[in-house]
């Protein structure tokens, strides 16, 4: 996917978060082509990609870097070198969405804070209160009716021979 890169740096220049990354998007692509996969997978850059696709629409070589970042996020989680906060939030999201069929903001954030830094929950209380006063915060999410169907679908995806 990254072979046609010409190392022009348009991705890095377009990225609104690249200044906070240890490896910029351009350098990630260079490292991938140089076979330095471990360097890439252990960088703190991957979860700073917020999937805004600015790099993708500008890349002169047509490299979909956002999708490259998605694939690297998944690989980093699988290979165990990954303990980033972004990854913790994404995994908390998946747990909530799998359980209810929908996201539920309060449960998602509580799960995230419990798995990272519970003290963060205290810092969030003033904003939570302002939202609650305006009816914009609820403690519990509602699950969908077809929860069991959805779980059957997910199970079918995992079955050997299903091609997944």
């Amino acid at each position: 996917m990254v072979a046609p890169c010409i190392q022009c740096g348009t991705c890095t220049a377009s990225c609104p978060a690249s200044h906070a990354m240890d490896l910029s998007p351009r350098r990630i692509v260079a490292a991938l082509r140089a076979g330095q996969r471990d360097t890439v997978l252990s960088s703190r850059s991957l979860w700073l990609c917020a999937s805004c696709y600015a790099c993708v629409v500008r890349c002169p070589s047509g490299i979909p870097f956002t999708d490259v970042a998605y694939a690297l996020k998944r690989e980093a989680a699988r290979t165990g070198v990954d303990d980033r906060r972004g990854s913790a939030l994404a995994r908390a999201f998946v747990r909530v969405a799998d359980r209810l069929g929908r996201s539920a903001e309060t449960e998602l954030l509580l799960r995230y804070w419990l798995s990272t830094n519970p003290l963060r929950a205290i810092a969030a209380l003033p904003l939570a209160f302002r939202l609650w006063r305006r009816g914009r915060l609820s403690l519990f999410g509602r699950g969908i009716v077809g929860r069991q169907d959805l779980q059957r679908m997910m199970a079918a995806l995992e079955r050997p021979g299903s091609g997944a």
Partner: peptide, 10 residues
């Protein structure tokens, strides 16, 4: 977005 970063097929 968050789900795609964990499992694309799901």
């Amino acid at each position: 977005t968050a789900y795609f970063g964990v499992d694309e097929a799901r």
